[in-house]
Amino acid sequence: MIDLYTWPTPNGHKIHILLEECGLPYKVHAVNIGQGDQFKPKFLKISPNNKIPALVDSEGPDGQPISLFESGAIMLYLAAKTGRFLPDSDRAKYEVLQWLMFQMGGLGPMLGQAHHFRIYAPEKIDYAVNRYTNEAKRLYGVLDQQIKGKKWIAGGDYSIADMAIFPWLRSWQNQGIDWSDYPNLKAWFDRMGERPAIQKALLVLADARKPLTDDKARQALFGAGQYKKR
């Protein structure tokens, strides 16, 4: 059995989608990051970076339990475990991996910053808003060109690259995006949203997540407690 420690954020949804697409049974453990659950000792044992998602598989590669943190590592593990959504051939595999790295190293962090400074920052800093909004638009443009004439991001079959990128684009309005500027990417985004596994995955803990408007949630996510030595 897979125990998934998660919350309905883009990185959490990446794993929800992959698990649903693979059809693997899993048990959800809510880690309410707005209430500070990510700092509890039990969670830190499997996710020392105090970030969701994290996973414990009771049937690891050698038959023994394995715990993993970092959403990209979890995606690679599950793809290897099931033999799905990551090609076998070296050429096709690295096509997928480069776009997975694009999401992990660029798209996710930059869109997260755009979202933060546009929506959550306690003061409006024009330089930061403009910097990260423009970077969001640039990254959407990269994806729009990549998907042009293709059905899937990596150019071959549906893969973990598509699953990793999709959840990050769901907050396009908060990122300052106008879909009319990215018609190729919008067609892919709509196609992804029609997949039954994705629709089911997006319901995971959906009722539990609340707007981050109270002081406790803001402190847990953005306050000095983030930097406390543990």
Rank of each mutant, 00 (worst) to 15 (best):
I52G: 02
F39K: 14
L139Q: 06
G83S: 08
E20H: 15
N11P: 00
P167C: 04
I2L: 05
I66Q: 04
G60W: 05
K27R: 15
P41M: 09
E59Q: 15
R170I: 05
Q98L: 06
D178R: 09
A217F: 08
G112T: 12
P25I: 03
W152V: 03
M192K: 00
F117D: 02
A136W: 06
K45Q: 13
R91L: 15
K40M: 12
D37E: 08
W172K: 06
W99V: 05
Q175R: 02
Q146G: 01
V28H: 10
D144L: 01
G63P: 05
G176Y: 08
L139D: 06
L97C: 11
L205C: 13
P196V: 11
I160E: 00
I119N: 10
E70R: 06
Q103A: 10
I153T: 01
K228N: 03
K150G: 04
A79T: 02
Y77E: 02
D3S: 11
D190C: 01
D144H: 04
H115D: 05
I177T: 07
G83P: 02
E20G: 07
I198C: 03
A208V: 09
N174Q: 14
G149W: 09
Q175P: 01
G23A: 12
L221P: 02
E194Q: 15
Y158S: 04
G225R: 14
H116Y: 15
Y120N: 10
G225W: 13
K124P: 05
K51R: 15
M75I: 05
Y120P: 00
G155S: 12
Y26H: 09
L205Y: 15
D62A: 12
D90F: 12
I177V: 08
E194M: 08
M110K: 08
I147R: 00
M192D: 05
H29P: 03
H29V: 09
E21N: 07
S171N: 15
F102D: 00
L169Y: 03
E70I: 10
H116A: 06
I74M: 05
W99M: 08
T6K: 07
W7P: 00
F85R: 07
G63D: 04
G149R: 07
I15Q: 06
W99E: 00
G60C: 06
R218Y: 00
R118C: 12
L4F: 15
Y94I: 09
P183M: 06
K42E: 15
L18A: 06
A73W: 14
D90Q: 11
E135Y: 10
A206R: 13
F222M: 12
I52T: 04
A220C: 11
N11L: 07
L143M: 09
I52Y: 04
P8T: 04
I177A: 03
F189N: 01
R118T: 14
Q64A: 13
E194T: 03
G156D: 13
A92C: 04
S171H: 15
Y5R: 10
V31R: 03
Y120F: 15
K124S: 11
G155V: 12
I17Y: 01
Y132G: 03
Q146C: 04
N50Y: 07
I2A: 00
R230Q: 14
P87L: 14
D88P: 00
E59G: 08
E95D: 15
S58F: 14
D88G: 04
E194K: 15
P167A: 01
P53I: 12
